[in-house]
Write a protein that binds this DNA or RNA. Structure first.
Lengths: 256, 256
DNA sequence: CCAATAGTGTCTCTTAGACAATATGGA
DNA sequence: TCCATATTGTCTAAGAGACACTATTGG
């Protein structure tokens, strides 16, 4: 259904004779909220902004904003992501923010009826978002150091984390957390950080390299070192998007 | 973000100096749309209603309706599902309609700005929805005989079908398509119908029976026949919700 | 030489795919 | 009896977990 005129009452007969009540058609505000994840120093981080107004003045919240009159929620999400991260719209388009779910509890905003469409985005380690001489500031926060967030944003983040953990299993999404060229060790770090587990390096390597299109070696013999071990070969993301068979996390836990 | 007052502009400096424009805050109508699937006679069916008004008068559309002032989208979905299928609210609650995604294209409704939160629900083969002496009628339609649907409902159904196909792989959801007691042949039919493939019976059986909590045998020696072969043992849904390891569809295709 | 990280090889166990063979009902 | 479906069993191949071992760098 879609029509805002008298709501259809389509099917048969024994329907409660509740016809159109104008009070049913309340205006909603629609926003997007962004759960932006990255991996920094082997820890999962999320992008938060500090609220500059009531309610929740001074609390941390997800970046986001209103859906404008002529844009879709997805367009709003990409626009906000570019604004918050300072990345170019082109780069942001490549990140393909993905719709997570919509939050519509009637009391989620104390002031009025606000429905929010939440998106997840995975980014490689980025520079700190613009140093804020502004009213409100934005920054990366370790996922496990989150305090109480504004509105239902804590729940949105939890849902987002569960989603990306699941998607690592059966998609090639993990490369989105990495720079354009990366080592298999870095890729493994992504899995270990998001899942909160330790993986066997040889087995991880075998799985990644035998999954067609997951990664492809960077031609030039260039190599790079992370510290003081043997330099690692570099790879970049391949053309595949799905992983078949999937790379299941140990114990098959669905991380609560 | 969530606040409908002046949208926050949280992060740093070089921000386009476009401040709050009251025109940005347009009122939206919010609806829910239901993609209700069932398996009938080895074919996937969806529940459709005929529109009784413009636009798309006489076209088929998904059941759905407005989100009311004091309910969440999920509550609205359960309410509409009960109304459309004639099932009791208790039964509907057990079906756990699941949020699919939100559709927000600015032009998806020609009249005004409507954002719709779509839900999927899987039901066993049900009686035809109330014979309609009413204005509009509702009925089960084979998925592959869909004509052009109202609004973007064709796309919603396609998304819903892809989602349930994927969920069959790693959840025990398939039992939702079956009556309380069912045979393994019926369960296999669900997979074959939704995926559009043919599965090897002995292998399917082994997989289902060795997945702890997927199904449990019905105690009483009661058996039942589907036609003229050997009667099959009956099972009911087990306690598990996830399948580990998953039951991957052949060729690992993600059915486009 | 040692520490640290990258990479190779191997063995085993689980699981899935293919498919033969048997069981049990109705026409 | 034949036919259709259910059920059991076997063989094989792919993939994952465990883990020993080698390679290459910096100190």
């Amino acid at each position: 259904m879609t029509s805002p005129q008298p709501p259809r009452r389509p099917s048969g007969q024994p329907r409660v004779p509740e016809n159109y009540d104008p009070a049913d058609f309340v205006p909603f505000a629609v926003t997007v909220d962004l759960a932006v994840f990255t991996v920094r120093e082997s820890r999962l981080h999320v992008l938060l902004v500090e609220r500059g107004e009531e309610p929740y003045l001074g609390h941390w919240a997800l970046p986001g904003g209103f859906v404008r009159p002529r844009e879709s929620a997805g367009q709003a999400a990409r626009r906000e992501l570019a604004e918050e991260t300072g990345l170019s719209p082109d780069t942001v388009a490549g990140l393909r923010p993905e719709q997570l779910r919509t939050y519509s509890d009637p009391d989620r905003d104390p002031r009025m009826r606000v429905v929010s469409v939440a998106y997840t985005a995975l980014v490689p380690d980025l520079p700190e978002p613009r140093g804020g001489g502004d009213a409100a500031q934005a920054r990366w926060t370790p996922y496990d150091e989150l305090g109480r967030l504004a509105f239902d944003h804590g729940r949105i983040l939890a849902d987002g984390r569960r989603r990306i953990g699941a998607k690592l299993e059966y998609t090639c999404l993990a490369t989105a957390f990495c720079p354009p060229e990366f080592t298999l060790g870095e890729l493994q770090q992504v899995y270990e950080t998001v899942w909160g587990v330790v993986l066997d390096r040889p087995n991880f390597r075998r799985k990644v390299l035998t999954s067609p299109g997951f990664v492809e070696p960077v031609e030039g013999p260039p190599r790079r070192t992370g510290g003081r071990g043997k330099p690692a070969a570099l790879y970049r993301a391949g053309a595949a998007t799905a992983l078949h068979p999937p790379l299941l996390r140990p114990e098959g836990r669905t991380t609560p």
